[in-house]
Amino acid sequence: MVPFLHGGGQEKNRRASTENVPDIVGMGVACEMAIEEMAAEALRETALRDKLIKGILDRIPDVILNGHPTNRLPNNVNVAIKYVEGESILLNLDMMGIAGSSGSACTSGSLEPSHVLLAIGLPHEIAHGSLRLTPGRQTTDDDINYVLETLPPIIDKLRAMSPMYKKGK
């Protein structure tokens, strides 16, 4: 049998060098924390997620929730906001201290929207206006409120600029 790594005599000469102990310990601690907190944390984040989804759908017209309303990750909010372009939403949110990601990877030099969004049936121009927000362990209820206050005016501003958007339509 050829050793996996050459060098020291660890693991009966088959895998040289000391294992990555800090990572192994870290992994163990992470699992410990997950066992203790995951169920509760998932519930907490699910509540934040649902509040965020409901808030966005209530406050902004012409928005589509991407994916299933409940059968989704506890921390995943993904909405298609019509008549606006993803990069311009992100730049605005970024200026307000909110980190999100978009259905289109415009800033990365790509002009192609997310292939997942296209696969679930969104047309290109709507996939381009998709926004993903993911609450995490540090996200609080106040943070959600802040997003819900900040996002609608941004969308209003961008839609006012968009020749695709006609009020009352």
């Binding site: 372009e85 311009s88 415009c106 121009e125 020749p163 695709m164």
Partner: peptide, 29 residues
């Protein structure tokens, strides 16, 4: 897919006012 619309108010060969609407990324706007 960028779309840009420019409207002008013109008098005596001078552009008095100019307005735009644009669907697109940061650079387009």
């Amino acid at each position: 897919g960028d779309i840009m619309e420019m409207q002008l108010k013109i008098n005596d060969g001078v552009i008095l006012d100019a307005k735009f609407r644009t669907f697109g990324c940061g650079a387009a706007i």
